[in-house]
Design a protein around this nucleic acid. Structure first.
Lengths: 197, 197
DNA sequence: ATTTGCAACTTGACACTGTCAAGTTAATTG
DNA sequence: CAATTAACTTGACAGTGTCAAGTTGCAAAT
């Protein structure tokens, strides 16, 4: 007979199932709903099963953060791919993907960006280990950099869209219905960016 | 005999003492150390005493956020007061106060800015109820505003310094020791700001 | 001055959490 | 087929937020 997948244990890929359950819980009930025991229950295993795949709750959170970062990167990349192939549209598309991810995955995004991790640490090749940040770097590349080099451009763009996304999601911006909603393009029109060449 | 302050209950101002204890716990052990029971113990009362002064843990967190916002406002204001009295120095001073608060009070700042609250909601007079945000608005006022008005300037400045502070504290920026540390002034040189008149 | 009322606080309980130690099961290996 | 081992279960423990029911002490009312 074929391999039974209904067996009491030996779930096909429990680790992945737990991460997925965790993200579901996060989206459904916010960060306080993310619980090792609830993840285990949702994946149909005992309450202590997760301990064999992660180092405690903090380990699960790290794994969820990794998975979230990959979702984040593809969200931005697909926005870029759908945009006109020139610097400003691509930059704006990336930022809209950034903001959109925060809006659509509030709890996950907040979890991810409240983790201490060194996203910008460069590996030997000068690239970073984080796919999302590499996308941002690429989107910033076509612009003229000031005396501080490309890094200042990247920091400014990143800080601006990160702060805007965070404040928006937290309801700390644009909550006055009388005022017009500000767009990503409006926001970035305040930034000193010029296409090189 | 004089009023004994050692009495089993009737602490002078328990509410304030609990808020203070909460902030201490936050600074000492991060957000996971902030606990109703530990606050109560530190203030020398029983574990259920806080319930009479706040609506559960969420209520204590709100109260701590309020207290933190006031600390935040005075931190920025005192930086401004110590700066040269002209627009750019004042803006930079405010931002340095902003960043500094995040560095010196990481856990508190993260707690505050992960609360959903409508900081920018304007009251009748056009001012907001939040002192910290009013300081930011004042620091932005002397600059020329684009077609989107002062609001766009405020959003851009706020997003930029919020994102930068957050990313810095989370270790997601400036973690490459080979690269130079970027300053607030460097960051804001990327922004399109000109003094009016 | 005594009673009454009430707000502040305590005590005890409950369900839920993360984590650990020990047991059980199933699949692989020799 | 026996032994090993990784995956998972079971049970326990301390800590948590929250609720219900006391207790206490002060202040106003009679």
């Amino acid at each position: 007979m074929s391999k039974s997948t209904q067996k009491p244990h030996h779930h096909g890929d429990l680790r992945a199932a737990l991460i997925l359950s965790g993200i579901e819980l996060l989206e459904e009930g916010g960060v306080t709903a993310l619980t090792l025991r609830k993840c285990a229950a949702r994946a149909g295993v005992s309450h202590a099963a997760p301990a064999h795949h992660f180092e405690g709750l903090q380990g699960l959170i790290r794994a969820i953060t990794d998975r979230g970062m990959s979702m984040f990167a593809t969200a931005m990349q697909s926005k870029i791919d759908a945009a006109e192939d020139s610097p400003f549209p691509r930059l704006y598309a990336m930022c809209e993907g950034y903001l959109n991810f925060f809006i659509e995955h509030q709890a996950l995004a907040n979890l991810m960006f409240n983790q201490k991790s060194e996203l910008m640490t460069k590996s030997a090749g000068g690239r970073t280990t984080n796919a999302a940040f590499n996308i941002l770097v690429s989107a910033c590349a076509p612009f003229i950099h000031g005396p501080l080099g490309h890094q200042a451009t990247e920091y400014a763009v990143w800080s601006l869209i990160q702060g805007f996304s965070h404040l928006t999601v937290m309801g700390q911006i644009s909550c006055d219905p009388n005022q017009p909603q500000i767009s990503v393009a409006d926001l970035f029109s305040m930034l000193n960016l010029q296409v090189a060449e």
